[in-house]
Amino acid sequence: MTPESTVQAGRRATMRRFRYGFIIATLAYVGLVHLSDFVLDANPGASWRYAIAVLPAVPVAVCVVALVPYYHHLLDELQQRIQLEAIAFAFLGALIIAFVYGLLELAGLPGIAWKWAWVLMVALWVIGDWLARRRRL
């Protein structure tokens, strides 16, 4: 085998592991969302309901922590740099928006649920990815 094809084979194996991991995490997430919904509905006053409520976040957290290195491994050095720049853009954008909105809450704007923060971050990541690609490719 030439060195190139070894690298390619390694990448394919990583890609496979990445994809399986992702599918398993998604299935676990969907299953746990329904399970925790069901359990919470049946036991509205239980003291342990918070522990049940966060269960669906566990596969997502495992996915992020375990799969990010794999994902990173799949990218060449320029792609890595583009991703890092896109994420830095998203982080700073979200930081500034959260900061300004926090101040506007003082002035009386309604509070927003925290879950919108991660939606905002992912949206900014998409924009950052587009910008970084335009700059580097």
Partner: peptide, 27 residues
């Protein structure tokens, strides 16, 4: 980025289960 996204994601569930909303102030 990853840490914040995970934390706010997780807190979304706790919010749903009845923990109080936290202002964006604390984000």
């Amino acid at each position: 980025f990853a840490g914040t996204a995970l934390l706010t994601f997780t807190y979304g569930f706790l919010d749903f289960a009845g923990l109080p909303r936290i202002n964006w102030w604390f984000v």
